[in-house]
């Protein structure tokens, strides 16, 4: 866990290695309610010109979100996440997620994300997140009914 107090631009997040299993691709597709056959039916994917099933964008988004909150800790609130996909994640490949802090302002940090696999860049993106110190208590996750109290903080803290 890293509070933003100890986070500085240029910090690199420890990489997260994600084995791209068939199970992960299918589980992610179904958990995101994406029933496109190219995400679960290898034969259908081949008929559409893809060598195999491949990960859907929602799963990539979820994995990036997990990578960020795993690193920044339970008081992380993700504000923005923008990702762009490149080389597909096929079964049997491995994706390594990496992150670099690009800006810190108060409790808010911007992180540049890349995820590389055997074919190249699967994902590149930018995240904006806020880490609220536990003693500040008023995080939306832990005190859901106090969300209005946190709103000014969020608006004030979110850089453009």
């Amino acid at each position: 866990m890293t509070a933003t107090g100890t986070t500085a631009p240029g910090d690199e997040l420890p990489p997260l290695t994600v084995p791209i299993t068939r199970t992960l691709i299918v589980a992610g597709a179904l958990a995101s309610r994406d029933y496109q056959d190219v995400h679960h039916d290898a034969e259908a994917a081949r008929q559409k010109g893809s060598p195999d099933i491949f990960m859907n964008i929602l799963t990539t988004n979820g994995l990036v979100g997990r990578y960020l909150t795993d690193h920044f800790g339970p008081h992380t609130v993700l504000r923005k996440l923008a990702i762009r996909l490149g080389a597909p994640n096929y079964p049997g490949d491995t994706m390594v997620l990496r992150g670099t802090v690009t800006a810190v302002e108060g409790a808010t940090a911007q992180v540049r994300i890349t995820g590389t696999n055997g074919l190249g860049h699967h994902v590149t993106g930018t995240a904006t997140l806020t880490v609220t110190a536990p003693e500040n208590a008023a995080t939306p996750e832990t005190t859901p009914d106090t969300a209005p109290d946190t709103a000014p903080t969020r608006q004030g803290a979110a850089p453009r």
Partner: peptide, 16 residues
């Protein structure tokens, strides 16, 4: 009817 289109990722979409 979104299945009609058939999502596909033929070759790797390199960023460049």
């Amino acid at each position: 009817m979104n299945r009609e289109a058939g999502e596909r990722d033929g070759t790797p979409v390199n960023r460049e």
